[in-house]
Amino acid sequence: MTWAVEAEGLRKTYPGRTGEVEAVRGVDLHVRAGEVFGFLGPNGAGKSTTVRMLTTLLTITAGRATIAGTDVAKDPDGVRRKIGVALQEAGLDPRQTGRELLTLQARLYGSTAAEAKDVAQAQLELVDLVESGDRRIKEYSGGMKRRLDLASALVHEPEVLFLDEPTTGLDPASRITIWEEVRRINARGTTVFLTTQYLEEADQLCDRLAIIDGGTIVLEGTPSDLKADLRERKQLSEEPTLDDVFLDATGRTRTRVAGEVAEVQA
C-alpha cells in the first residue's frame, strides 16, 4: 500500500547552547490517501518541526519519510510537486495582488502564462476572493490572507496538502470559513495533513489524528475511537471530549473556573 504520508523513525536534532536539542525523537506516521489527518500537540511538542521535515523545508536528521511514495530526502523536488504547503504564518508577499501571487505560483510549477491566468482565476473563485483579487495583499484581512494562502498551496493540484495551524489567530467566523474550505478541498480527493492546537477543530475536521508530545507520538486513532477508549479505560459516566483525550495523552491537567478552561498546566 502506498501511503499519502509515511514516516518511520523521523528525528530532528539541532545544535543548542548546552548541547544537542532533540526536537523530534523518532516519529512514525501513516496517513491514508484521501483522509484528513490531524497532528496535535502542545506548544513545542514537535508538530511544526515534523511538518517542515515532511515538506522538505528542514533536513531529516535520521529516519525516513515518503509522500505518495516519493522519498523526501532523496527526491525533494519530486515531493514538492506532490505537496501543497500553508504554514503557520501565511507566507504571502504583501506587495503583490492576490491574482499576481497565484499567477506567479502557477508559473513556478510550470504553467504557461495563459494557463497560469486561468489557474489564478479558478483559485480565487475557490476561496471566494475574486472581488479582492486585484488588490494588494497588504490590504487583506487575516482571514482573507489565510484563504489566499490556501489557494496558493493548491495551484498545482497537490496530492497532499499540509496545513500548519491554519486557523491560529483567526476570529470564529473566519475559522469556520477555513474549515469549509478544508472540507471542500478534501472532498476533491486531496489528502489533508493538518496541525492544530484547537481540539474542536480536530474533532470537526479529522478522520484520524495523532498526538505528539516531547517529540514522540503518544496516541493515534480516530477521534471517536480515542474518546471511546478513554471512557472505557477511565470508567467515565459521560462521553469524554477530545480535550480530555488530549490532556490524558499528554499528562496535562486543567483547572475549570465557572465552566471555562482557565489554564492547561504541564
Binding site: 522538505t56 514538492r80 510537486r81 505537496i83 504554514l87 507566507g91 504571502l92 508577499d93 504583501p94 505560483q105
Partner: peptide, 16 residues
C-alpha cells in the same frame, strides 16, 4: 522581508 514574512519558505516548498 520574504524570510521573516514566510514567503521565502513558500518559494522553497516549490520545485524551483
Amino acid at each position: 522581508e520574504d524570510i521573516e514574512g514566510g514567503y521565502f519558505d513558500r518559494l522553497r516548498a516549490t520545485p524551483i
